[in-house]
Nucleic acid binder design. Structure first.
Lengths: 331, 331
DNA sequence: TAAAGGTAGTTAATCGTTTACCGTTAAGCG
DNA sequence: CGCTTAACGGTAAACGATTAACTACCTTTA
């Protein structure tokens, strides 16, 4: 059986209140140093472990943060890691949920308040946030959205994907591309749309014909397969702006396999700036997300609201910036 | 304010017991269909969300699983993803903890029972398991260890890293290497040791001089930096067996940067079989972990024990197998 | 007609803490 | 000596569910 404060109290002929006050650290009334020590000592001897479930029931705090992400692809994992580093000193645990693969993310979001977490971080998950809020208008769990910019109330750390995309496509044109394509995945969410808008705007301004290649998923295998299919039926574009680095790496692999040279035949630019892009034989140009700043601010906003639920919502818009590497540098 | 079953009961002039029985799905006594519908309807109208904290306090079940991993490097993330896929149909949430970066993993493991999770999956974390058990001898939370094989009681899905390493190093010798090195990280844990043993045994049997290169961490940047340092002072080995794929990719990058050709000058073999290894210009040979099987069995064992705590512990030892790709194939 | 059994729902204890609000004791003070 | 006050700790009511045991009423059945 589990050791409870009652067991300790009985053993010492004290009340549970006294034991609780010592063990929880917050002594609302005076407890003598001698008693404190006796309690601490006995707790250690008996192997007492506080029951956080019971504690949470009365305090309303679980010390758990929930992270909603689309997937746990490398980019998202980098974010998870950075967030964990931020949170750790404050003693929170992290529950991670990848919503895209979730069989019923809608019902999950609707019923989410049942978990009683202390805060929610929504990474590029505006759909989930919307469903959650609509189903629970009266719930006020601290929530911060981070990721791609979109119209949003409440705390928010956004990244301007549009101008990042513009920068990338302009760079492709400057590198000499005349028919650069946009490689994206099927499911149209706001991240893909923002980058699409940037791509289209530059192409139109340059008077060039846009070309969009659509793969099933935003993963490496999917992009690789789609590029193979595409190249069997069509001429090769001379540039590739990709929805994310995963797709860029997948496409790159397909090009290698077909003997197409990068960057001479095709210049490639990805998005996100995951670590993998630096470790290819020909490092990948990419629009780097300011993940460190994003996580730092995101956690700052969330913690502020946890400590004081009534502070005014804060919103920040960060810039993504292009990093040019070999995959788009022609001599 | 939050809606409770008491609110529903009051509104309908029923007892909380009746409401609870309907809402929790398990009706131990008869409830008329009419009442059932009224309760369900009212719960929906009032936006009732069950309080899982309160439920957990009485049932002793939180529906939360904890995953202990060393880090969230790509290999571990693949495992996390696979485990989530397994667990999802059963309605469990996952709390992820990366222990290596944890400022005080020891205290964390000692006090872990406070979280009251329903089960623990320890991925390559024997140290944590040991500390946890020693500090909590009477606690019987279902726990399954998965990963590298080591002496272990309780449920366990292991992988025979030793023979995987042997296979890899023998392959390097067959590819013509005469002084292949083992690239590993500083902190000696059982995973590194098992692979080291395999390396040493093959080298000794072949009458060759072992050579171990030690980086600070098992990450790409660390391996890359260490290889640069090493090559400034020493001649280049003609083969590289790496602790994991991360280090292999980092080392590969360093070699590229120094103009050393792979596989002609150096043949490389990594370990784990992460997806990245397939997406390099020159795909990486690697000892693939049977992650899918590992996760499938791991979850099966854990679920079995959750449902019936007294079943006999089950242990399985899987094989890792070498996949030869371009990075070690000489013509 | 009395016992048995089924149906529908209630009572109240319980899970392990926290915490607002009360005692009790003894020292301090005029 | 009587009163105040600080020091130390206890009482008991939450928190929001679950659940064993029980009541009350209505039908069967022998």
């Amino acid at each position: 059986m589990r050791v409870t404060i009652r067991d300790i109290a009985n053993r010492l002929n004290l009340s549970t209140a006294t034991v609780s006050k010592v063990l929880s650290g917050r002594e609302s009334t005076f407890i003598s140093e001698a008693t404190r020590q006796r309690v601490l000592e006995t707790a250690r001897e008996m192997g007492y472990r506080p029951n956080r479930v019971a504690r949470a029931l009365v305090t309303g705090k679980t010390d758990i943060i929930s992270l909603w992400a689309e997937t746990l692809a490398p980019y998202h994992t980098e974010v998870v890691n950075l967030l964990m580093d931020q949170m750790r000193p404050y003693g929170f645990e992290l529950i991670v949920t990848d919503m895209v693969k979730h069989p019923d993310w809608r019902a999950y979001c609707e019923k989410f308040p049942q978990w009683q977490v202390d805060g929610i971080i929504a990474l590029d998950s505006p759909r989930c946030v919307r469903v959650y809020h609509e189903a629970n208008p009266m719930v006020r769990t601290p929530l911060v959205s981070i990721g791609a910019y979109y119209l949003e109330e409440g705390d928010f750390v956004g990244v301007d994907l549009y101008s990042g995309a513009v920068e990338a496509v302009q760079h492709l044109l400057e590198a000499g591309c005349r028919r650069p394509a946009y490689l994206v995945c099927e499911y149209g969410h706001h991240v893909g749309d923002a980058r699409y808008d940037g791509y289209i705007s530059v192409m139109q301004q340059a008077g060039l014909e846009p070309l969009v290649i659509v793969a099933e998923q935003s993963s490496r295998p999917s992009a690789r397969q789609r590029m193979h299919e595409y190249l069997q039926e069509h001429p090769c574009p001379d540039g590739l702006f990709c929805f994310n680095d995963e797709m860029a790496i997948g496409a790159y692999r397909a090009l290698c396999e077909r003997g197409i040279r990068v960057p001479d035949d095709v210049a490639i630019v990805g998005c996100d700036g995951i670590m993998d892009t630096e470790y290819l034989e020909r490092p990948l140009s990419t629009v780097v997300q300011p993940v460190a700043e994003m996580c730092r601010l995101g956690w700052e906003f969330l913690l502020r609201r946890i400590e004081n639920p009534s502070v005014a919502p804060q919103q920040v818009l960060l810039k993504a910036h292009l990093v040019v590497r070999d995959s788009s540098t022609r001599r």
